[in-house]
């Protein structure tokens, strides 16, 4: 094989790729903020005493967990405007789709963590005369958040990678820009390698953080 690597193409395309990375990071960060809060609310709803509250959200979680993200993204971009009359710019729509997807995954993590909150902690909350809302705020949430943290971080990184799919609906994120550069320059190897490395350079350190947090939690529990 005679292939001449020409990495100077990447240097030329670097500003363009960084533009894309900015969009990717925006998508990821805002979707994560939405999902960290919305996910907890959904988890509480799914654990509700009332069947009518539980059922729709349980179904929602399963629907988002059991279908490909790509289908979800296409569904949001093509169907939400038609069905609900909501017309959003591509970036907010991408954030909405990914945020709700991630909220469902986070809700699962929160749910498991909430169920693992020690009974005595809840009893202590009652004994101290907290209102139900205060118990959630001061007892349940801190416990559940701590216990769920490694999974929440892992989910967040997964979303960072999944966000590449918005390129398919022409949202100009890192993946999309990479694809543009690759086709225009006829240098797919250099470009896709560089793009992959950029994704890796961000998600790998964060995954180490998740592993570290998990280790610390395990150590605290032991």
């Amino acid at each position: 094989m005679e292939y001449e690597f020409q990495f100077h193409y990447i240097l030329q395309a670097w500003p363009v790729l960084m533009e894309g990375l900015k969009v990717t990071v925006q998508l990821t960060v805002i979707a994560n903020i939405i999902a960290l809060t919305l996910g907890f609310v959904i988890a509480l709803l799914v654990l509700s005493k009332y069947w009518l509250l539980r059922a729709p959200f349980a179904l929602m979680i399963e629907l988002f967990r059991c279908t490909p993200v790509l289908v979800q993204i296409l569904w949001f971009f093509y169907c939400v405007p038609i069905l609900f009359g909501i017309y959003l710019a591509p970036l907010p729509m991408g954030i909405l789709a990914l945020g709700i997807n991630l909220a469902c995954f986070n809700a699962e993590a929160y749910r498991a963590a909430i169920q693992a909150v020690p009974r005595e902690q809840l009893d202590a909350g009652v004994a101290l005369g907290f209102s139900p809302l205060q118990r959630v705020r001061y007892v349940v949430f801190p416990h559940a958040f701590r216990a769920a943290l490694p999974v929440l971080i892992t989910n967040g990184i997964t979303l960072f990678q999944q966000s590449a799919l918005v390129a398919i609906v022409a949202l100009s994120d890192l993946m999309y820009m990479g694809r543009q550069v690759a086709t225009q320059s006829y240098r797919p190897i250099e470009t896709y390698t560089a793009v992959a490395l950029i994704y890796f350079a961000i998600s790998f350190p964060v995954s180490r953080v998740a592993a570290w947090v998990e280790q610390r939690l395990d150590a605290a529990r032991a």
């Binding site: 990184i157 990678q161 999944q162 966000s163 590449a164 799919l165 390129a167 398919i168 993946m175 990479g178 896709y192 793009v195 992959a196 994704y199 890796f200 998600s203 790998f204 995954s207």
Partner: peptide
């Protein structure tokens, strides 16, 4: 594990 499957 650290890169999007799409790019793979």
């Amino acid at each position: 594990r650290g890169t999007p499957v799409l790019i793979q």
